Simulated scan of single mutants.
Amino acid sequence: MAAGVEDLGRRSFLTGRFAPVRDVTRPPWTRHEALAAACTGCGACVEACPQAIIRMGAGRWPEIDFSRNECTFCGKCAEACPEPVFDRALPAFTHVVAMSAACFAERGIVCQSCGDACPEGAIRFRPRLGGPALPSLDADRCTGCGACIATCPAEAIAVGTPETAHV
């Protein structure tokens, strides 16, 4: 193996993680390959985030926790990083939101908190007979900021790919 290159498979095995963790949300403008190649785990991006949504996750890489707040795309995480991990030429996130069947509106309870919180207006509500309006996601407008996730009282919203989103 080349010097300076980690064998993440062996490292995962020895630490009890048998599969690499790739389902977590990484900071904006980062991709798995850049993190694996350049991230030192210094935590500068964690300290710089004014929204306090970046934390150090498993494998010493930063990850996003949308349960408390949203990403405002301020760029302070990218500015604070001393390594070439962030690429502001890329789209900030590759995900959109996805809603589960736990959604209050899906269960017949009136709720539009996700639509009210969405700064891009990507979540709209379509009327239905005999029940509350159902949320509908315009994936092209969704920035993946996570504003809807923290406000959902049913905890029914998570990040997903544009193919899996059915909000």
Rank of each mutant, 00 (worst) to 15 (best):
R31K: 14
R55G: 10
A34I: 00
G57I: 10
A80C: 08
L90N: 12
A58S: 11
F93R: 07
P82S: 09
I64D: 01
C77W: 09
S67A: 13
G59S: 07
M56Y: 03
F104V: 00
H95S: 12
E47Q: 10
C103I: 07
A34M: 06
T94N: 13
F86P: 05
E106V: 12
E83W: 11
C45F: 09
V96G: 07
C74H: 02
Q51K: 02
A101C: 01
A34D: 15
A37Q: 14
E83R: 05
P82N: 08
A102Y: 06
R31Q: 13
A58P: 10
V97F: 13
R60A: 14
G75H: 05
E47F: 07
T72N: 02
P82K: 05
E70I: 00
T40M: 12
C39W: 05
A101K: 14
C74V: 02
A92W: 10
P84I: 03
H32E: 15
C45T: 04
R31A: 08
E106A: 15
R60S: 14
G57K: 04
A92C: 13
C39D: 10
A44H: 06
A37I: 01
G57S: 07
R88C: 02
A58Q: 11
L35T: 04
F86H: 12
E47A: 15
L35G: 01
A92K: 10
F86G: 06
M99Y: 11
M99W: 14
G75T: 07
Q51T: 08
K76W: 13
M99V: 15
F66R: 01
I54Y: 08
F104R: 09
A37C: 01
A48P: 04
F66H: 10
T72L: 06
V96T: 14
V97I: 15
R31I: 11
I53G: 02
V46P: 01
W61E: 13
S67N: 05
E33Q: 13
E47T: 15
V85R: 08
P84W: 04
R88Y: 09
T40K: 12
L35P: 03
N69V: 01
P91W: 12
A89Y: 01
P50A: 02
P50Q: 04
F93A: 07
W61P: 00
A52N: 13
P62G: 09
V97C: 13
